[in-house]
Deep mutational scan, measured.
Amino acid sequence: MDVFMKGLSKAKEGVVAAAEKTKQGVAEAAGKTKEGVLYVGSKTKEGVVHGVATVAEKTKEQVTNVGGAVVTGVTAVAQKTVEGAGSIAAATGFVKKDQLGKNEEGAPQEGILEDMPVDPDNEAYEMPSEEGYQDYEPEA
């Protein structure tokens, strides 16, 4: 019985440690998101679009440190934060509304985080759909 109880105690310690790591990862992701939003706020009209992409990228980098179902929630929060940063930029006159959601080359930025393969159960990952990809044929 002692062996059984000791095993359960060790398992509990492992769960607590994993929860603490997840909590730490979420806190880091939130900190990076805040950094990115402050970065966007300090940019001029020309830099705002690039700044919004930076927020998304920093958040995406930190999301990889967070495991399990938390990833889905962090990704949703990050996307809403990026959308909010863009709205703030438009409201303050840093950028025109028609410039939001495009990178410096004018290509749409939507789907940055949505296409990231995420499995809350950590069982399997699927690649994003290939609808947006084109076949590449090298020139002879």
Rank of each mutant, 00 (worst) to 15 (best):
K10T: 05
E28Y: 06
Y133G: 07
A17Y: 06
K45W: 15
E137V: 12
Y125Q: 08
T44K: 01
T59S: 08
A91G: 13
A78T: 08
Q134W: 10
E123H: 02
P117R: 04
D115W: 13
G41T: 10
V40P: 00
E83L: 08
E130C: 07
V26G: 00
L113D: 12
G51F: 01
T72S: 01
G67W: 09
V49N: 09
A30Y: 13
G47M: 14
E130H: 13
L38H: 08
F94G: 13
T75D: 04
D135F: 07
E110I: 05
E28G: 07
Y125E: 14
E57A: 08
K80I: 11
D2I: 15
V74E: 01
V37L: 06
A91F: 15
A27Q: 13
K6N: 06
G51A: 04
K43Q: 08
K60F: 05
K58E: 04
T75Y: 14
E123Y: 07
V40M: 11
V66Y: 12
T92K: 12
E110K: 02
T75I: 15
T72H: 00
I88R: 02
D135N: 14
G84Q: 14
Q99W: 12
A30K: 06
A140W: 13
V77A: 12
E114G: 11
E137W: 05
E61P: 05
S42Q: 07
D115A: 13
P138D: 11
K21Q: 07
E131D: 08
K23L: 06
G36N: 15
P120D: 13
A27M: 09
T59E: 01
A90W: 09
V3S: 03
A27H: 09
K58W: 02
A90D: 03
Y39G: 01
A30S: 01
S9H: 04
A89N: 02
A124K: 09
N103H: 14
F94K: 00
I112H: 13
N103V: 08
K80E: 04
E114S: 12
P117Q: 13
G106H: 12
A30E: 00
E126G: 05
A76W: 02
A11H: 01
A85P: 04
V16D: 02
L113V: 03
G36Q: 04
E20D: 05
Q62Y: 01
A30R: 05
V74G: 03
A89M: 15
Q62R: 08
I88V: 06
Q99A: 10
T22Q: 00
A27R: 11
A18K: 04
V49I: 14
G41V: 05
V74P: 02
D98C: 11
I112L: 13
S87M: 09
A107V: 06
T81M: 11
F4C: 03
A11S: 00
S9Q: 08
V3P: 00
D135C: 11
F94Y: 11
E28C: 03
M127F: 14
E83K: 11
N65M: 05
V26Q: 00
Y125V: 12
G14W: 05
G25Q: 15
E126K: 08
T81H: 02
G67E: 02
T75M: 12
T33Y: 06
A85L: 13
E13F: 11
E104P: 10
G14D: 06
K10D: 03
I88H: 05
G51Q: 02
N122G: 09
G106M: 11
E131W: 07
M116W: 15
Y136M: 13
K32T: 05
A90N: 10
A107C: 11
P138L: 14
G73T: 13
Q24T: 07
A91L: 14
N103E: 06
E35D: 01
T72E: 07
G47Y: 11
P120S: 10
